[in-house]
Every structure is written in structure tokens, then in C-alpha cells.
Nucleic acid binder design. Structure first.
Length: 586
RNA sequence: GCACCCGUAGCUCAGCGGAUUAGAGUACUUGGCUUCGAACCAAGGGGUCGCAGGUUCGAAUCCUGCCGGGUGUACCA
């Protein structure tokens, strides 16, 4: 619809002035119209006329367009277009573009490390990454969600050191004494102890360095039997079990974990194969000289011969390509890895330019505590992922409701998603997970309300003994995670054909019609927060409509029911892109 | 030092080349439930968009400089 109009406006410009211009319609405030164009200002200089004069000439041409019911010239020369009611109904039926149809996309995010705790930042990146993956999927891509994490490396050695110290030796039997529900916390505590020892105690530090090598060695030798290996593999599995349980709780699922132990050998091999042409030896380490490209120089293989994170990431990129033969790879990490990642990608570009070009690195900010307190897993003053969920659960309980994970997750996810990705997130345990105003539960409530109206309408049509009309079909409660099926939405909009809307009705159908444009924008930019902003406006529009317009029993009931149904479906679709469920009751 | 990111109401954030009063939420002050769900709606106060220049018909938005904060800067991830 928007593109169609833009094309028609361009045609009008060409016919009138015989010049080209980039026409881009915007959505003005409702009082000014449905679309606004600034072509007159753009053309002003080129045509040597003042913008209002151009706009006045264009106005009658645009008034002739089928989709347009009125045109106003406003301000310095804006053309405000008002759509016909039929056009609004039509806009509300358009599906988002399948711009990625047939493309294979690998989305990597979350990336927690085994042997360490899941903190609020992991929750954040999981939620945002999941939503971005949903956007890619909606655009028609075949999306593979994968996870990358360090099952080898210094953090593992630190944790292992503390465990062995606690056990008084390499005694895997004692693992049986750790209660299953405390595995994660127990390992997190060991990590903190190991990290402190590493910093404060020289002999411990030396021991940890040795353990680090032994962990790599254990992988090389495929050792599952030695006491040391038994402790390692058991704890590693505990970590993955803990991740799985967590992802299950927040409603996301990964297809594959890429442990570093798996990408390390391939990375090592790849980097070594390109020594001389891409990577250089320097002080006993293998580095990539990023300075030639205006970047940092970074170590890929350290002087111990072990791969650093850089080499592991090189291996990961290649492994993903082998596994999925992707058209595009999206990697989501924290901001602090921005410059680091450009070094890795620049080095890959030297021998696999396409691979580097098809990789998109998106970054997000830190989750910080109110007052700018920085979290440190070493000091243990971190906000764990479960703490965030627990706080939100308390807030829901405080409303006198039984705890409902749908609402809890709705609140948490929305509070993370509504901010543009990139900046830091300030998390205030008390207020951040709000249930009122611009919040997830507000949207869920606005959905439940609409469903309740639809349900009541269905009841009363039974009570009247009236025949169940096919166009008054109301979907019964479905699994909240299921996308609305399209046939029912066509039923809904069918009742709207040829209707002349009253004010509140028109506002609602107008807003519904923006959905597709917003989704397309969010997909193009991979920015889920656009969906949040829109959905909140949509729900607000509905709540105002609901306040002022009786639905059930009104003489315009049929029209209004159709509107409410289309609205509820749109809201549910949008929420599903955010990974938020739309309950029928709450 | 150099590189990158950020600075919009008390607080948390949208807006990222467009306009008539710079928008939301929250907090604060008020009004609205015998009528489809008040986790809602309506009204009010609150901002020289960090500062200073520049480009433009038009700048919170683009450019430059400065101030403030954060991150990165060779064997951590």
C-alpha cells in the first residue's frame, strides 16, 4: 500500500514536472492525515519554485488517486493524504514482506559459558536474539538458532581448581554429594573462588594455568575416564542441563550448542594454514596485524600454542558455514566485542571474503543496576538471570494474582525489547519490570480484553437462539503461542468491506494497517523495539476505542466485532514476534 | 594517547533530515467503575534535546570542536 502510493505519487510528479524524485511517505499524526509526503520541499530547489506552489499543483493530481479521499497542503508544503475507508481496510489485510524467502540464516546469540552463572545479560541477549530470529523467520528465512560458549579456557580452569581444592583432590565421587538443584550455584561459587585465588595467590595461579592446559589436553585425547576428566565432563553437562532448563523457562530453544572445544581445533588449523599471508608470528604468538586496516592487532594463537577466543571464533564461522551453508550469519554479542569482532572478520576477509561479508555482527549494551553499579561475577554482586525473573514474579504476585509465568515473561521481555538495541539497559529491580503503562502486561491485558468481548459476543448470539453466522465466527481459546490463522482474519475483514467508519473505528483500522509497514522496518533493521513502540500505540488506540464504543449489543456490533477481532489477531502476531504470549484471560 | 559507543522531562525510554504545542511511561495533582475486564481511560504541571559553531528552505536528528560517562586497545572471554 505504502509503496503503491509512493509509486503513484512519483508518476504524478513525473507527469507534472518531468523530473525524478525519491518519494518516501511518512506516517503523520492522525489529525494531519494517514500519510504525508514532503516531495514538494524536495523538488523546490530543482524546480526553482517555492514548495507550497508545487504542492498546490500536485494536490489535484493526488486527489484523483483511488486510494485517496482527500489531500491537504500544510505547513511549508507538506502534502497530507487521507485514505479512503476501503483503502484502510485493504491495508489491514496486507501480509508482511517475505524478503528473505529461501534464505538460510544462522542466528547466534546468548552465548553463556559453561562453568559460570547465567546473569541478567544472558537473559537480555537471549530475549533480544530470539526476537530477531523471529523477525528473520517471519521474513521467510530458514533460521537456525545456535549458541556458542566456552567449555574450555581460563574460566573453566579457575572453576575446576576450586572444585578440586574443595574435594581435597581429584575425586569425582564427591560430585554425588551436590544436590541436583544446587549444581549451577555450586559451580558459580567455585568460579568466584577460583578467580579470587588466581588474582591473589601466585601458586594458585600457576596451578590454574596448568589445569587450563590439562582441559585442552583432555579434549585432544578424548579422555572421559580419568578422575579429572570425570569431574570436567560431569560439570560441563550440569551446565548445559541448567542452560536448557533456563531456555525452556523463557520459551526459547537452540538447535545447537557450539562449544569452544569444538571450534578450537578447526580455528587453530585454519589460522595456522594462513600463517604468512594473513597471520604473522610475533613474540612467539600468532597475531593478525589489524593496524594495517585501522584496527587493533590481536593474538589468535598464544605463545603456549593454545587458540585464543579469536581463533575459536574463526573456527566457529567456518563450522557454521559447513553445517548450514548459510546465506547470512547474524551474531549478537555485547558492545565490548565490537572492535574485537571487526578484527576477527577482517582476518577472515583475507582468505574467505564472502564469509566475512555475509556475517552481520549486532551488539547490545550492558544490563546495569540502577545507579550505574557495575556487575562483577568475581565480586558476586551480579544480577543473575533467575533473580530478574524472581523479581518480576514477586511483582505479579503483589497484584494479588497467582503467579503466572506468561505475565512474568511478558513483563521482562517487553522491558528489555522496548529499548533500541545498542545502549545500556538500566535494570531497576523495583520498577523496571512494570506491569502498568508501557509494559508487556499492558499489551497482554489489551489482548485479553478484546478476546473477552469476542467471547461474550459468541455467547450472546447463542443465547438469542440466533443461528451462528459464519462471519461472526469467533475463535475459541487457542494455545497462546499459535499465530493467528489467516482464514479467520479474512472472515473478519470481509465484514468491513464497503463500511464507512466512525471516528473511533477509523482510528483503530488505521492503526492496524500500519502493522505491516512496522514489521517490514523491524525486519530490515533487525530492530525489535519498533514492534514494541507500535504495539503499545495499537493497544492504546484499542483501549480508547473500547472506552468510547460499545461493541456487543450495539447496532454496529458486526462491524465492531470484526475490527476487534482483526485487532486482537494483529496484536497477537506482534507479540509473538517478541516472544511474548497473548493470553485470552488473565 | 588513539579508536568506538552514549548524553532528550526527577527517573526509564521513543523519536535519528521535516512541520502546527519535542513524544511516551513512571512519579506527582485531579476526574471517571449499577453499562462488553479500572493491569483501563481522561485532564494538568514538568524539557534552552550536554555545550558551542557549521551545513540546510528546515537540525534532537548530519558535520566539526569541546565537556561529561562507558568500552576497547597482544597472548581473558
Amino acid at each position: 500500500m505504502k509503496q503503491e502510493l509512493e509509486k503513484q505519487i512519483l508518476a504524478a510528479v513525473q507527469a507534472l514536472f518531468n523530473v525524478d524524485v525519491h518519494v518516501e511517505l511518512s506516517r503523520p499524526e492522525e489529525q494531519f492525515g494517514d500519510y504525508a509526503s514532503n516531495v514538494a520541499m524536495q523538488l523546490s530547489k530543482q524546480l526553482g519554485k517555492n514548495p507550497r506552489e508545487i504542492a498546490d499543483q500536485l494536490k489535484p493530481k493526488l486527489e484523483e488517486l483511488d486510494l485517496v479521499s482527500g489531500v491537504e497542503v500544510a505547513g511549508p508544503g507538506f502534502l497530507n493524504l487521507k485514505l479512503t475507508d476501503a483503502a484502510l481496510v485493504q491495508a489491514a489485510q496486507i501480509e508482511p514482506a517475505k524478503s528473505l524467502a529461501g534464505k538460510v540464516v544462522v542466528a547466534e546469540y546468548s552465548d553463556p559459558n559453561p562453568f559460570k552463572v547465567l546473569h541478567a545479560g544472558h537473559l537480555y541477549t537471549s530475549v533480544v536474539g530470539d526476537s530477531i530470529a523471529n523477525l528473520l523467520e517471519l521474513a521467510g528465512a530458514e533460521v537456525h538458532r545456535v549458541n556458542f560458549g566456552g567449555d574450555v579456557g581460563m574460566h573453566v580452569a579457575k572453576t575446576m581448581w576450586a572444585i578440586i581444592k574443595q574435594f581435597g583432590g581429584e575425586d569425582p565421587q564427591q560430585l554425588n554429594d551436590i544436590p541436583a538443584d544446587q549444581h549451577a550455584e555450586w559451580m558459580a561459587a567455585a568460579y568466584i573462588e577460583g578467580t579470587n585465588a588466581f588474582e591473589d595467590d601466585e601458586s594458585a595461579k600457576a596451578e590454574i594455568v596448568v589445569l587450563n592446559k590439562r582441559v585442552y589436553q583432555l579434549h585432544n585425547e578424548n579422555d572421559h575416564d580419568s578422575p579429572f576428566a570425570q569431574i570436567y565432563w560431569t560439570c560441563r553437562q550440569w551446565a548445559y542441563d541448567y542452560f536448557d532448563a533456563f531456555y525452556d523457562r523463557i520459551g526459547t530453544k537452540f538447535e545447537k550448542y557450539y562449544p569452544e572445544s569444538q571450534t578450537a581445533p578447526l580455528g587453530l588449523e585454519t589460522v595456522r594454514a594462513h600463517i604468512g599471508e594473513v597471520y604473522q608470528e610475533s613474540d612467539g604468538a600468532i597475531v593478525f596485524d589489524g593496524e594495517k586496516h585501522g584496527l587493533h592487532t590481536r593474538v589468535f594463537i598464544n605463545s603456549e600454542g593454545l587458540p585464543t577466543y579469536e581463533a575459536k571464533d574463526v573456527g566457529l564461522v567456518i563450522l557454521k558455514k559447513r553445517d548450514y551453508n548459510f546465506d547470512r550469519s547474524v551474531v549478537i554479542t555485547g558492545n565490548e566485542q565490537l572492535q574485537y569482532m571487526s578484527v576477527v572478520l577482517k582476518s577472515i576477509e583475507q582468505f574467505e571474503p564472502e564469509l566475512a561479508a555475509n556475517t552481520t555482527h549486532l551488539t547490545h549494551g550492558l544490563v546495569k543496576l540502577q545507579g550505574g553499579v557495575k556487575m562483577s561475577s568475581r565480586k558476586g554482586n551480579i544480577l543473575r538471570a533467575v533473580d530478574v525473573l524472581d523479581e518480576a514474579t514477586e511483582a505479579v504476585k503483589a497484584l494479588g494474582q497467582s503467579e503466572d509465568d506468561q505475565i512474568v515473561l511478558g513483563a521482562v521481555k517487553y522491558s528489555f525489547l522496548r529499548q533500541r538495541m545498542g545502549g545500556d539497559i538500566v535494570y531497576d529491580p523495583k520498577e523496571s519490570v512494570s506491569l502498568e503503562g508501557n509494559s508487556g502486561p499492558y499489551l497482554q491485558y489489551a489482548h485479553a480484553r478484546a478476546r473477552s468481548v469476542l467471547a461474550r459476543a459468541a455467547e450472546s448470539s447463542h443465547a438469542d437462539g440466533a443461528q451462528l453466522r459464519s462471519d461472526a465466527h469467533v475463535p475459541q481459546a487457542r494455545s497462546a503461542s499459535v499465530l493467528p490463522d489467516h482464514p479467520s482474519s479474512h472472515d473478519a475483514t470481509a465484514a468491513l468491506n464497503g463500511v464507512e467508519f466512525e471516528n473511533g473505528e477509523r482510528s483503530l483500522i488505521r492503526k492496524i494497517g500500519e502493522y505491516t509497514e512496522v514489521v517490514n522496518k523491524a525486519v530490515n533493521e533487525l530492530m525489535p523495539h519498533h514492534i514494541c513502540t507500535y504495539l503499545y500505540e495499537l493497544a492504546q488506540t484499542f483501549n480508547r476505542f473500547y472506552e468510547n464504543n460499545r461493541v456487543v449489543g450495539d447496532e454496529r456490533e458486526k462491524i465492531r466485532l470484526a475490527l476487534v477481532q482483526r485487532y486482537a489477531e494483529t496484536l497477537r502476531s506482534g507479540l509473538s514476534l517478541l516472544g511474548i504470549t497473548a493470553p485470552d484471560k488473565m
